[in-house]
Structures are given as C-alpha cells and as structure tokens.
Write a protein that binds this DNA or RNA. Structure first.
Lengths: 228, 228
DNA sequence: TTTCTGACTTTGACAAGCCAAAGTCGCAGT
DNA sequence: ACTGCGACTTTGGCTTGTCAAAGTCAGAAA
C-alpha cells in the first residue's frame, strides 16, 4: 500500500499531464505542486522509481508508469467522489470541498467508497465538472473547449471549471458560472486580453483571458444532458 | 494540532478509565492498547507531558490532563459519529465499522462532522450503544449493569455491547443481542461460570461470564425509549 | 566556443515514531 | 532485611519525509 505522501505525488503527476501525452513533468513543477523543496521531490521520486510507480529521467523529469497511473486514478476517484458527496449529501459549498477531500481521499476504504458511489448514483463528474474515473480506471472525459477559443454569439454550456481555488470558485458561483450553466461569448478583445460573456439572465461579465481559460465549455445547440 | 498518533494515545487512555476515577493507567497496558512496545509508549508519553496533555508518574502510570481529556472526547465523538454514519447511512455492518472509523476519525474536519451529526439527528449513542460525547465534551452515559450481575427473571434491555471485536459482534448480531433488544436472565451458574438468557422470541443462549460481562443492560419494566 | 545562470541533484541534518535489548526499580515472598 | 522477577525506562538504531545549502549540469547568451 502506498503511503498518502506517495499518493499525493502520483496524483500531482497525473493532474499535470496537459492532454494525455507521455510527456515528462519537470521536477521543479512537481515539487511546487506537492509543496516541498526540489530536493525532497528528487529523493521521493527516486524511491518511487524503485517501486516502479514512475519513470524518472534525471534533469528531464518524471512520468507515471502504468501502475503509477492506475494508482493515481484510484486516488483521483476517491477525491472526486468525496467532493461530490460533500456537496450533494452534506451540503457543503463547492468552493470549499477541495481541501476537505484532500484529507479524506487518503482515509476512505474501497468498501466505503463503493457505498458513497452508489449513494450518489454512480456519478461521472464532480462538482467542478472534473470527470470521476471509474473503479477500473477509465476516464470518460467530456469533449470541451477553453472559453477564449470559442466563437462569439454561439450558445455554450459550462462543462467544467478547471480551478480549485476557493476564491475563484466563489466568484464563479456568484456569477452563475457553474457546470451546466449556459452562456454566450459576446466579445473577445485581444488588446484588453479579455472576454465578455453573458450567463443566463445575468448581466454581461468581462473576464481576463487567464481566468476565462479556466472555464471549459461545449456547444449547447440542442438539449444535451446536464453534466451533473 | 495533535497528530493522529497522539490522538490515539489520548483515546486509549480515556477508554481505559473503568468508571470515572482519576486513576492511573499503567504504561504496559497503554502500550498494548496502542499496539506499540512499552519503550515507545514511555517516549511518547514523555513528549505528551511536555504539551500538558497527560500527567505522568514514572513507574506508576499516566492519566489525562483536563486538556487531554477534552481532546480525547473530541476524538471519541468523531469515532462514534462516524461509526453510526457508516451503519445508518452507508449501510455497513455494525461489526465492521470500528476499523473504518479508526482511520476516518483522524480525517474528518469539524465542519464535516457537524453535518454528519445533523444528518443523523444529533444522536446520543453509536451502533454499539456507546455514548457519543457532545460537541462541548459532555458524555451523558446511560446507567447500566453488566449482565452477570443482574437478577434472574426480570425483563432487561440491552443498552450497550462493550466490545469492538468483529467476531464477537457478528455472533451477538446473529443472536439478536443488539442495543435495544429485550431479554431475561434465565439462570446463572457459578460453577459452570455461565449465564443463560432468552432474547425476544429466540431460543435460550448460554454465555460464559466473560462474554456476558460485555453485555450492558438496564431494567426494561415500562416502555423506556429505545437507545437508538 | 565559452560563460553564465537557473534548474536540478546531492549532502548533511532533523523530527516523529517505532523496535530491540540492556538497565533499573519496586514489591512479593522468603 | 534480602532476593528475584516482572514491569518499566533508557539507550541506540532504523525509517519516512522533510529542509537548507552546497554542488553540478545543460542550454541561452555572448
């Protein structure tokens, strides 16, 4: 059984994969993702290499082995199911559940997880729209586009908010920017580096591109199922 | 914040208090309760003395300080609420929840605990009949008698099963020996060191005194409230 | 091509917990 | 009062995970 420290390293490496390339994560980035000094990360990754959880190339970076990826997916599954449980059943605010889940994900047994999964009706996405890996490690990712890359004046629906920062999430929530919400891009301004959108009945909002990038959307022409 | 190791030591010291005497727990017993060697316990208790969580007298034993007791009660509250949640909401078997709760009790935040408490309707006893301390550290213990000390032929009700061993609990469950169940003592046999009881509609069962001691009961003359 | 710089690795040290084994104490029994 | 033995404490050592600081490398800049 991996320790919870090892689980965290695995999770961070997995999350860092931008698409699904077999690309290497630089040690510096891993270190700051996990919240340790680079030296610590190097040491940890070396021992994880012994257990065949990762592939490590000095001065290049680190990548998950198949076993490592499978473990990372289990951790992610626990994390996201717990988040959803906290929101749906216990009624916590979606902006604050990430922290809680961060601890709980290392304490939940398979048996309890299975019950929670059933209680929630075998959901496929967490409160932020992130996909929940299945018990056998499949991730059914929804196709989506980052907001700044969308055409203007087309109906869109938010699939996912790719940020865990409570401040950002609270802001999003207050402006109706939750998974499932419908919106259109009114204007894109390259010079101001901003995107103006209109959500449901609300007034238009203007977001900087870097914030807008964290909103992932899909076309909302017909009546596609709500992601939750 | 105390580590989960410290929380476990505190919990074991608290649980060991037979009644509510300010008596000392011998180090040997603490060590085996926590599952470490005596030397480890001595070392740990010394550092806990520094933080004023316990009062330690070399070669005599250890006792909780007021701060220690308050912390122990918080841990116990988490443990027992989690146990009840596992049984009532997730539908796990009461014989197996102790192990699960042992881990979860160190991972649940106050906020989540409060939600679970509310979800369960602010319960006062866990699935084994053990009292759940209130958020501010009060324990409302139900008066009870150990089965072998009861009169024969009087109606009794099980208040509590003072054992966490899954095997014993499964046996108890299969024989209807759950908190709230009614029974009468048919016979006590000093020589055979046994007690014969009859539970509800079941056939009579004969238990050794040491097993019967773990069943705590109260008189069931009138219609007292069910402990759950 | 050489140098410089920033990213990475190595090294030494530390804290928390733990064990095994040696040392010490107190009390029951003579 | 003395002796033994069992319970307790001490000592030395191990593992995991961490940091700080010194050392090294590779690629950008010259």
């Amino acid at each position: 059984m991996p320790t919870s420290t090892v689980e965290n390293y695995l999770k961070q490496i997995y999350i860092d994969q931008p698409t699904d390339e077999a690309t290497m994560m630089p040690m510096g980035r891993l270190a700051s993702a996990v919240g340790v000094t680079p030296g610590t990360a190097t040491a940890m990754i070396k021992t994880m290499t012994e257990s065949d959880l990762v592939v490590y190339e000095p001065r290049t970076g680190v990548r998950l082995s198949p076993e490592g990826e499978s473990l990372a997916l289990q951790v992610l599954r626990r994390h996201r199911l717990v988040e959803l449980w906290l929101v749906e059943i216990l009624g916590l605010d979606w902006s604050e559940v990430h922290e809680e889940a961060e601890v709980l994900e290392h304490a939940i047994s398979d048996k309890v997880l299975a019950r929670i999964d059933a209680l929630l009706g075998h959901p496929t996405v967490d409160p932020h729209g992130d996909p929940i890996p299945t018990a056998d490690g499949d991730v059914v990712a929804r196709a989506h586009t980052s907001l700044p890359r969308c055409e203007t004046d087309k109906p869109l629906r938010i699939v996912r908010i790719a940020d865990q920062d409570p401040e950002f999430l609270t802001y999003a929530d207050q402006n109706g920017l939750v998974p499932g919400a419908r919106l259109i891009v009114e204007r894109r301004d390259r010079i101001a580096d901003a995107v103006t959108i209109r959500v449901g009945g609300h007034d238009p909002i203007t977001l900087g591109t870097s914030a807008a990038e964290r909103l992932l959307v899909e076309p909302a022409d017909g009546q596609t199922a709500d992601p939750r």
